[in-house]
Amino acid sequence: MNLYEVVRWGNESDDPVTGGGNGPDTCFLVRASSVDEAAALVDRELARMPSEFVEPWAHVVSLLGTELSTQSDARILRGPYIQHAYGYGWTGWSRNAPGEPWEDTGRRG
């Protein structure tokens, strides 16, 4: 299984400085076998967190590495947590709308 950071741009806060689409991002640490599986887990979680300030779907997925655990179930390990998502040069994918295919961002570590 792989470890991914799955990100929705912005956060649910209505604070004019630190909230909404221009504030720190909503992030999740996910164990999954693919980008699609990781994003689907987060999309389901975000759908349960409605907000008038941000979109309820994942925008970016970054591959962090491989998990060495013997567990094989895909799941969210941590999140949501709020921080600016930078990518840090990791391999990544993005999309502009839910249901669109994931596009390789070309970043490599």
Rank of each mutant, 00 (worst) to 15 (best):
G109Y: 06
H59D: 14
A38N: 03
S94Q: 15
S72V: 14
G92R: 03
P101N: 08
S34P: 05
V7N: 05
P24C: 14
H59Q: 07
L77S: 10
G109P: 15
Q71Y: 01
Y4I: 03
I82Y: 04
A38H: 04
G99V: 06
L46P: 07
L29I: 15
G106C: 12
G79A: 06
T66A: 10
V17I: 15
R31I: 09
A38D: 09
G21S: 13
E52R: 11
L64R: 10
T26N: 08
H59R: 06
R108E: 10
S72Y: 03
E103S: 12
G65E: 00
P24K: 13
R8L: 00
A40R: 08
W90Y: 15
P50A: 07
V54F: 03
L64D: 02
V61F: 06
G106R: 12
V6C: 02
S72D: 12
Y86M: 10
A32W: 04
A39S: 10
T105L: 15
E45K: 12
W57V: 02
T105S: 14
N2F: 09
E100I: 04
E100Y: 13
P80A: 05
V61W: 06
L68R: 02
V17K: 12
S13L: 10
V6H: 07
P98C: 04
W9I: 15
S69V: 04
N2W: 01
I76L: 06
G92A: 15
R78P: 00
S62F: 08
H84C: 11
L3I: 14
D43R: 03
N2T: 00
S13P: 09
T26R: 08
T26P: 08
V17C: 01
D14Q: 07
G92H: 07
G109D: 13
V35S: 02
E52I: 09
A47S: 12
T26G: 05
A38P: 06
G109H: 09
H59S: 10
D15L: 07
S33D: 14
C27P: 09
S69D: 12
L3V: 12
R78W: 12
R31K: 14
